[in-house]
């Protein structure tokens, strides 16, 4: 893949990730558990993992987290969004590049959501100095399976469609 094409893909993925995150922040999606969100930007991370090398995947995630934090909850929340975003991207990338035989895109997405939620509650435990909040972990794990499945299904369809159309191909 040429450098220019690669950069174009990064820019397209980053802008879409930012837009989706902002949309999710400003448009209220009622979910049964307060504080839980779908994590739609995970779809973009999945696309990045499939179509880009590892370091560019991290670029996409980090730029998205930075911009979204500045535009919404403020840079103080970066400790949460960056750790969760980057760690889940690393795990999903490893699963996709090394263990694709054993995991579907949906499964990889669920794994990412599990890592994301577990990381966030760990950061929260550090910030609050409280172990007790791990009481919430079971709820977070179950919701990660559901949200990961939803974003994974969407991601899988997009990846299929893009491969079929030849968009982003010849990596």
């Amino acid at each position: 893949m040429s450098k220019h094409k690669r950069n174009a893909i990064i820019v397209i993925l980053v802008t879409n990730a930012i837009l989706i995150s902002l949309l999710e922040f400003f448009v209220f999606i009622p979910l049964p558990i307060p504080g839980i969100k779908l994590g739609l930007a995970n779809i973009i991370t999945l696309l990045a993992i499939v179509f880009l090398n590892f370091r560019y995947v991290i670029n996409v995630v980090v730029i998205r987290c930075l911009v979204v934090a500045v535009l919404t909850r403020g840079v103080l929340t970066l400790a949460f969004s960056l750790t969760g975003g980057v760690l889940s991207a690393i795990v999903m990338a490893i699963l996709y590049k090394r263990f694709r035989r054993f995991f579907s895109i949906k499964g990889i997405s669920i794994a990412g959501a599990l890592v994301h939620n577990t990381t966030q509650i760990t950061v929260a435990a550090f910030v609050l100095g409280q172990i007790v909040i791990f009481y919430y972990l079971p709820i977070l794990l179950i919701s990660a399976v559901v949200t990961g499945y939803i974003t994974g299904s969407i991601g899988e369809r997009v990846i299929d469609e893009m491969e079929e159309q030849g968009v982003l191909a010849n990596r």
Binding site: F99, R101, F102, F103, S104, I105, K106, G107, I110, A111, L114, F134, L137, P138, L141, I142, A144, V145, E156, D160
Partner: peptide, 21 residues
């Protein structure tokens, strides 16, 4: 696009951890 073996193992492990906790 079927779920694969690793997916199911992961889901079962998650379920066990969640229920156990």
């Amino acid at each position: 696009k079927k779920m694969k073996r690793g997916d199911f193992i992961m889901l079962m492990a998650t379920g066990l951890v969640a229920v156990g906790l």
